[in-house]
Simulated assay, not measured.
Amino acid sequence: MSAPLPQTIEPNPELPMTQQIGYLAAACAREGYRLEIVDHYSGQLARVHEGSRNFLVGAGSIHSYPINNAVSVTVARDKAHTYSLLKDASIRVPEGGHFFLNQSYRAHRPDGREIADALDYARSLGFPVFVKPNDGSRGDFAELIREENALLHHLAAMGQRYHCGLVQRVVHGEEYRIFVVDGEVRFHYRKAAATLVGNGTETVAELLAAANAELVGKGISPVAADSFFLQGELERWSMMLESVPARGQRIAYTRRANLSGGGELTDFKTEADPVLAGWARQVAGVLGLRVCGIDVMSEGGLADPAAFTVMEVNGNPALAGAWNHGRRDLVIDIWARICRLAFDDLAAAALRGSA
């Protein structure tokens, strides 16, 4: 269960507020900034004031962090563009390609990246392959695909919601998130895959149905009962969909490790050695991001960045994981730092304008 959010310091405490704005409100209350909720319907837009200066901050589809460049955040949302930039900087990314999933904007692109091309490319990589939307988030439609018909079905389903998808060679290892603010690693943790937790009475199928209902409620694609990953895990446990896991038994049911998709946070740390910190600064700098979450796969932990594969650079990373992990102080510190940097930028711009 999410921790209760702090109230805004506005006169009207009944105004709605999202989690992200709630974390910001706590920082504003501590630092003495005035927080104004602009969106009175859903609480996804706010303004932070210090004297005569103010800046906007958002949540949901609005990029949250005011010190990030909008172009950089938009580029980071496009994973294919992100991979191109990182690869040019000699930073390892997954072997893969991007392909268009429907006929939208067909007149604006050359040949060679349609669904038929995606199938040929997957054959060249060899199944299974990893498939996900090019601009998706929260693990939506991210799946291991085992054969051609399953790939075509998945691409067609993904094409109902997304314009472009990625087909990649499977990358092995554990997944990690590295959170960077203005060149400093503020924390990092390991992502554990989402699991079904047995209660001694319900079958795997019933547990999966409940998990899928929660995913759909969040707007995230469900996990198929015959998915390659789940079937592999059931085989490893010598179980079937009709089997009843023992109370407390955990069965990973998807490769997705996003916290919003049911993944779990572990090995949370706020210290980063100089090598990791320098590497993270380089990755953030390639995209021009001052705040970002870098997701990497590694078979050897975070000791050797040369062994990392960057899966994504998130220009709008959530702080709910740290908050719910009991690090409210850290989240408030991060937002306080971002606010200070934003006001300093406004002051510097004013000085330039008066020169």
Rank of each mutant, 00 (worst) to 15 (best):
S124W: 03
R106D: 15
I294V: 10
E202S: 14
N199P: 06
L5R: 04
L152R: 02
Y83T: 04
E202Y: 07
A142I: 00
S221T: 13
I115R: 04
A252R: 07
L5A: 06
S260C: 09
E148D: 14
G32M: 07
R109Y: 11
C164P: 05
Q231P: 01
Q7F: 15
V223Y: 04
A320N: 12
P274A: 11
A257M: 08
H98V: 10
G136V: 09
D295W: 06
R30D: 13
N68E: 06
L5I: 07
E10K: 00
D140Q: 08
I9P: 08
L289G: 01
C28M: 03
F268K: 00
V170W: 03
L144V: 08
I338V: 15
L45V: 12
G165A: 14
L86T: 02
I334R: 02
G232D: 10
R169A: 15
E10G: 15
G248I: 00
D295P: 03
M1S: 09
H49N: 09
I332C: 02
A350D: 12
Y41E: 14
N134D: 15
S104Q: 14
S72K: 03
A318N: 08
V171N: 01
V296H: 04
T195L: 08
L287F: 08
I9W: 00
I62D: 07
Y41V: 13
R169D: 07
A116L: 11
G321P: 06
L45H: 03
W323N: 01
G248A: 14
